[in-house]
Amino acid sequence: MSIGEGKNRLLMKASPKIEKEMIENCKAGDQKAFAEIVLHRQKKVFNMAYRMLGNLEEAKDLAQEVFISVFESIKDLKEEIKFDAWLTQITLNHCRNRWKYLKRRHYFNSDSLEDPIETEDGNMPRAIYDPSDNPETLYEKKMIQELIQRGLLKLKDDQRELLVLRDLQGFSYEEMGELLGLPEGTIKSKLHRARMDLKEVLERSTH
């Protein structure tokens, strides 16, 4: 059992299972059932959006849009068992569209890894990436997360998607294959390339 698979299982445990009945009630227009679905999946959708866009406000708005789409089109969902895959697919589609929209408006142009990382305490000097150093002593946890987030935004869209789905959301290769419509082998090789690119981006940004 790999580390990734273990993490994926952990996430699956953390996300309460949505019963078939709940989805059917929601399809019938039950507001309560919809509210339950939102409460069960809002963290997952919001986090995916945040890692894909790198902005909390945009992520919140996007996650809400995703649930509006769910509310409007859940009646078209034929297989209740595939609800999670369907929800992830809606989220990914919204993320792709929003990314394009923000990119057209040069939203990410000012966001550079050379800029100081903004923390709750204010602007701090740029963190120097050195894997030999102990991150717990040299960097705060939040700074590492910020660094990773900025690195993700420097990658290609599909690379970012792969990293978010596998390393941050804990999806299995099988699930990813279904979601992205790619064979597992392709996903594995693409993911490896994305990881190596992220490593390079982080190295460049710290030296």
Binding site: I3, N47, R51, Q149, R195, L198
Partner: peptide, 14 residues
């Protein structure tokens, strides 16, 4: 190290 960092990224609260 990079992979450790990546997996150390925690979920943000809604």
């Amino acid at each position: 190290k990079m992979m450790q960092w990546l997996h150390s990224v925690e979920e943000v609260e809604v």
